[in-house]
């Protein structure tokens, strides 16, 4: 998915190489940011800030293989940081409105927006970005078991919103709330 030779070249710190890599990973950064933040304008900011962080830190990356996890972690952190900042400044009505902008899968976005950040991030990394449980755990720096539990809880909360009601949803919510 991410070309190793580009990452290897970028690790030298040469601007041209880093910018080439950023151009390649930009769509992934934007999509991930958009999925977590739920808003186009916010996603632009998050993805750009993440690119700046990659730009700054790529030379200290210990290996090419670590890039994927490192990169996703940066985007997730930036996205959650922005969400938190915005939650503190926007009125609730504005926060509810942004989930519907320019997206065809309104139901899914609305359902995702109803999840707490911890659950939503796991869903996005797993289903949108196709990361394994182990990779998600590495990105979020939590145990794999936590990822599995969050995913299960998220699924139980999402499915009734997207399909028919699920009798286990309430149980999952209750467990996650603990």
């Amino acid at each position: 998915m991410f070309p190793n030779e580009l990452i290897e070249a970028a690790r030298s710190g040469a601007s041209a190489d880093v910018e080439r890599l950023l151009e390649v990973v930009w769509p992934d950064a934007y999509r991930l940011a958009r999925s977590i933040v739920g808003q186009d304008a916010g996603a632009q900011d998050v993805a750009q800030d993440a690119c700046v962080r990659v730009y700054r830190g790529i030379t200290s990356l210990r290996s090419t293989n670590a890039f994927r996890t490192w990169f996703y972690r940066i985007v997730v952190r930036e996205a959650l940081k922005q969400k938190k900042a915005r939650a503190a400044t926007l009125p609730l009505s504005s926060q509810a409105a942004y989930v519907e902008d320019r997206c065809a899968s309104v139901d899914l976005w609305r359902a995702l927006a109803s999840l707490p950040d911890g659950l939503r991030t796991v869903v996005v990394l797993t289903y949108f970005e196709d990361l394994s449980g182990r990779e998600v755990a590495a990105v979020l720096r939590v145990p794999e078991a936590t990822v599995r539990f969050r995913l299960m809880t998220a699924r139980r909360r999402l499915l009734p919103l997207l399909c028919d009601s699920d009798p286990y949803a309430a149980k999952g919510e209750e467990l996650y709330a603990r």
Partner: peptide, 15 residues
């Protein structure tokens, strides 16, 4: 759910 998410991801217009 997987299919739904993939579809939603593809529909995100990347600037």
């Amino acid at each position: 759910l997987l299919e739904c998410c993939r579809l939603a991801r593809e529909q995100i217009a990347v600037p």
